[in-house]
């Protein structure tokens, strides 16, 4: 992604690619006085720096869509609407899709073109997704024949549970991918962790045709030319390696920030509420004590 954006910028020679630096008082002239250290931009540097602004895009307000719309369905001046409602109880079943901790850098996410997260892969699989349901790589639109799924353990406290949940999700996606493409080769990499092995056993019946590697990943490298990925892993103390056309990294699902805030405010423990993250939705039960009681009644 970064590479791609870089090219986008360098297309325009009138944008100075370099950040302009401000003038500063030399260190030796700072001691023993309180003169301002930063001297600011010169006019030339300021204009150059200002030209680096991308003027981030959003609706231009040009009205071309309205001109093309036979039905007059577009209203530019529509304002945000405020609604006040009063309810007896609430049920939170919010999704997790946009709130995921980024996977550690060593897996190459963001640097290697064909390393995607499980959430991106889900969009790729979807008939509604960016590629209209074609299982292709984001780098060159080729159909991979060999995909690796990578689960990893997060040492951060309190994430262990969701890490294991991410394993079932990886298996789910792997199965969907296998169903979609005949003869797709899939490997599943697990961290060297008993909990994961146990969870895998629990899923045993569900993973035909997927080869699992339980020793933990040592390194991931990208091949310059093909952008395929070399994965090195530990197998009973021996280093093994293999080449994949695409890697799918698990992410740790987390509830949306506003849900965390809401939960704090209403004094409920999110951990109690965290349910089936497999479906990418947290099933909270009713959030008020009163509400929860009702739910049990109902």
């Amino acid at each position: 992604m970064v590479e791609e954006k870089k090219r986008y910028i360098l297309e325009f020679p009138d944008i100075s690619a370099e950040r302009q630096s401000i003038q500063e008082l030399p260190v030796e002239e700072r001691i023993n006085n309180f003169n301002e250290v930063s001297l600011g931009f010169t006019e030339d540097a300021a204009v150059k720096e200002a030209k680096r602004c991308l003027s981030c895009r959003r609706c231009l307000g040009c009205g071309l869509c309205l001109a093309e719309c036979d039905k007059d369905a577009i209203v530019f001046e529509q304002a945000d609407e405020k609604l006040d409602i009063c309810v007896d109880s609430m049920i939170i079943t919010t999704g997790l899709e946009r709130v995921c901790s980024p996977p550690p850098e060593r897996f190459g996410y963001g640097r290697y073109a064909n390393v995607v997260t499980d959430i991106e892969f889900e969009r790729i699989l979807s008939d509604n997704g960016p590629y209209g349901g074609l299982l292709i790589r984001p780098f060159d639109g080729e159909m991979p024949r060999k995909i690796g799924f990578v689960c990893w353990a997060d040492n951060n406290e309190g994430r262990g549970e969701s890490g294991i949940k991410s394993l079932s999700y990886a298996i789910h996606e792997a199965m969907l991918a296998k169903n979609k493409v005949d003869g797709l080769e899939i490997s599943l990499f697990l961290p060297d962790n008993d909990d994961y092995t146990k969870e895998l056993k629990r899923n045993d019946g569900k993973v035909p045709g997927i080869s699992t590697k339980e020793g933990g990943i040592m390194a991931i490298k990208e091949i310059q030319e093909s952008k395929n990925l070399i994965v090195q892993w530990d197998e009973n103390g021996n280093a093994r390696e293999d080449e994949f056309e695409m890697l799918v990294l698990s992410t740790m699902p987390e509830p949306a920030t506003y849900i965390i805030e809401l939960a704090k405010k209403l004094d409920i423990n999110l951990e109690d509420m965290r349910g089936d993250t497999f479906s990418k939705e947290i099933y909270f039960s009713k959030v008020s004590k009163q509400g929860r009681k009702r739910s049990e009644d109902g």
Binding site: P138, D140, E142
Partner: peptide
């Protein structure tokens, strides 16, 4: 996508 990218010299991910 690959063929288009090679022909136009535009990065393949952008073509995609």
């Amino acid at each position: 996508v690959k063929q288009i990218s090679e022909r136009l010299k535009i990065p393949s991910n952008r073509v995609l």
